[in-house]
Amino acid sequence: MPVDTKRLRGPEESQSPWLFVEQEQQSPPDEREDGRRKGQVDVRPIFARCGLVSQAKGSAYIESGKTKVICSVYGPRETERKDETDMKFGRLVCTFRFAPFSCAKRCGWIQSTQEKDLSMALLGSLHPGLCLHRYPRSQIDVSVLVLENDGSALAHAVTCASLALADAGIEMYDLVLGCSLRQEGSDYLLDPTFAEETQEPATESTENRGGMMVALLPSLNQVSGLLCSGDLEQQPLVEAVAACIEGCQRIYSVAQRCLLTAVKKKNPPPDG
C-alpha cells in the first residue's frame, strides 16, 4: 500500500475536540474576572523584594497581579532649595512616574498632571511615617516608576516606597502600606485591576460609585493618607475605609518578611 511520507498521518482513533473543551461553569454572580469575590477583603498575591537598584541608597520592587512597581530612594543629601522649615526637618521629595509602556495607552516622558497629583498623594501618605526631624537640612528623594499598571498603582507605590525607605535605613515611625478599593453600588472590589478601575458601570445611577486609596501605618494602626474620588454615601464610605485598612493589614506580613530577608542578606549579624 502506498504511504504518503510527506504528511503526518492522523491517529487511527480520533475524537472530536469539542469533547475536551471545558464546560462553561456557571460562575457565582459576585465573582470577579480573576476569580476573586466582590465585597471581600481579597488582595492579589504580592511579590516584594528589596535592594535591586545598586546605585540607590535603598530600593524595592513590588508585583501584585500584573501591576509592577519599582522604587528607589536617594539621600539624605544636601537640600537644593532652602527655607526655614528645612532647618529643623528634612525635606521629602516624591516623584511618581508611569513608564511609557506601562499603561494600555502609551504615555509620554513628560510628567503629566495625573502623575503630579499622584506624586503629591504619595508624599502625603509617606510623610507622617518618617522621622524627618532626624534629618535637618537635608533632602530625601523617593522616585517611583510604575512598570506595568494593572490597577491600584498608587496603593502599591506607597507600600513599595516605604519598603525602599526602610531598606535605605531612613528612620521611620512605621511602615506605610497602601490598599485601594473600587466601590460599585453596594459592592466593593478590593485591590481593583485596571479593567475594574476603568470599566463602564452596569447601571446608569452614579450613586455610590468611586475609588479609594488608604495608606496605613500598620503597627500604630493610624491612617496616614486617604484619597477618595466619586460619589459615596456615609455608610459605604465607612465600610470601604474599614475594608482598605484590613487589606493593608493583610499585606503587612509580606512587607515584614521582605524587609527581614533584605536585612539578613545585606548585613551579617553584629558582633558582641
Binding site: Q40, P45, S219, R250, Y252
Partner: peptide, 18 residues
C-alpha cells in the same frame, strides 16, 4: 490589631507570623 492580622484567605502569605 497585630494578632488579628493572621491571614485567612490570602494565598501569598504562607506563614503569617509576626
Amino acid at each position: 490589631v497585630l494578632s488579628s492580622v493572621q491571614p485567612i484567605t490570602v494565598h501569598v502569605i504562607t506563614i503569617g507570623r509576626l
